[in-house]
């Protein structure tokens, strides 16, 4: 595997199972992820779709799932558009329990040269992860990742 383009880590004061459950939640609209619904059973070989207002934001396939420690899936922006044309990248989550705190690491690999997707995700992940931490620790997501207002 190529070297990661990004590695994001965050320490969350919550049990590892709770963090895993949030990442593999397929029932609710994620307040910490712009209200997207992640449609998958999170089993290897299954499809994964991030749905926002009924449309596919991202499509992929689950490559590995080892609850509650590791989840790997492919990631392609829903089409049509230049980011969709860049094809599939890989997202890997690893969860470790250290001193009662869950360390969550997200690595994103496989970008094409001069990737537009790469620019977009470098803004997205930090906001998503800090909002996940906020939800799990306080019950409230951060304002910046709440669903878009209804027009």
């Amino acid at each position: 595997m190529s070297d990661p383009a990004f590695i994001y880590t965050i320490y969350i004061r919550a049990p590892i199972d709770k963090v895993w459950a949030a990442i593999t939640d397929n029932k609710t609209h994620r307040s910490w992820w712009w209200g997207t619904h992640h449609d998958s059973d999170f089993k290897p070989g299954s499809k994964l779709t991030y749905l926002r207002n009924g449309e596919a934001d991202v499509e992929g396939e689950i490559l590995e799932a080892d609850p509650p420690n590791r989840l790997v899936h492919t990631f392609r922006v829903g089409g049509p558009g230049p980011q969709h044309d860049e094809g599939y990248t890989n997202v890997e989550y690893t969860l470790e329990l250290t001193d009662g705190v869950t360390k969550l690491t997200v690595t994103h690999t496989g970008f094409v040269a001069n990737s537009k997707l790469r620019v977009g995700i470098s803004n997205g992940w930090p906001a998503i992860l800090s909002s996940l931490k906020s939800v799990l620790e306080t019950g409230d997501p951060l304002a910046s990742t709440q669903p878009d207002e209804k027009k």
């Binding site: 930090p126 800090s130 910046s144």
Partner: peptide, 24 residues
């Protein structure tokens, strides 16, 4: 900073998540 091991080398990555928390 987050790190990634590549053989005997250690690669360093900027981890902006704590800065996002401050901004938020």
């Amino acid at each position: 900073i987050a790190t990634h091991k590549r053989g005997r080398e250690k690669l360093h990555y900027l981890n902006p998540v704590p800065i996002a928390e401050i901004a938020d």
